[in-house]
């Protein structure tokens, strides 16, 4: 049942327990219990909203930064990752295979703000060997959703 619940809410965090019970055919009480259990276990880590900021007046820039680091004895990459992800500007940190070690996604109000963050906070960290900053110019699709796609039903209204 867990997998079914998760799939049903993955792209729609607003689904009510009542709806889920109807859709999945389980009693509301069971669904509610599973959900709160999964929240406790941090399987469900939040119910965020996917916003296309480009359509608002709010200035926002996103950058993807490739970071090379020296892993620390006994702690591997986890310690340095923690040093980085604790900054509130940092939206995401992933450990990578391949040519660099960490992908760090940063959001700021302006390019300058992001650049300063990299120069003043990220690059000087002791285990950081190098950074390469790539600014996002346009988001086409995020979290599986095509951002600019109008919702439109092109089917004829009644068909056999």
């Amino acid at each position: 049942m867990r997998e079914q619940i998760l799939k049903a809410i993955e792209l729609n965090g607003k689904r009510t327990v009542e709806d889920l019970a109807l859709m999945l055919g389980n009693p509301e009480s069971e669904i509610a219990a599973e959900i709160s259990e999964m929240e406790k276990e941090r399987i469900i880590c939040g119910y965020h909203t996917l916003i296309n900021w480009d359509k608002t007046g709010v200035e926002k820039v996103t950058a993807l930064i490739e970071v090379k680091v020296t892993p620390q004895r006994g702690q591997g990459f986890d310690k340095i990752a923690e040093r980085i992800y604790n900054f509130k500007e940092v939206k995401a940190v992933y450990l990578m295979s391949g040519g660099f070690d960490l992908t760090v996604i940063i959001e700021g109000a302006t390019m300058k703000e992001v650049a300063l963050f990299v120069a003043q906070k990220l690059a000087p960290l002791e285990s950081v060997l190098s950074t390469a900053t790539h600014f996002v110019l346009k988001k086409y699709k995020d979290f599986g959703v095509v951002l600019d796609e109008p919702v439109k039903d092109e089917r004829m209204a009644v068909t056999p």
């Binding site: 039903d153 089917r155 004829m156 209204a157 009644v158 068909t159 056999p160």
Partner: peptide
Amino acid sequence: SLGVGEPD
């Protein structure tokens, strides 16, 4: 419409 006979 709930009148459509094809997938959405």
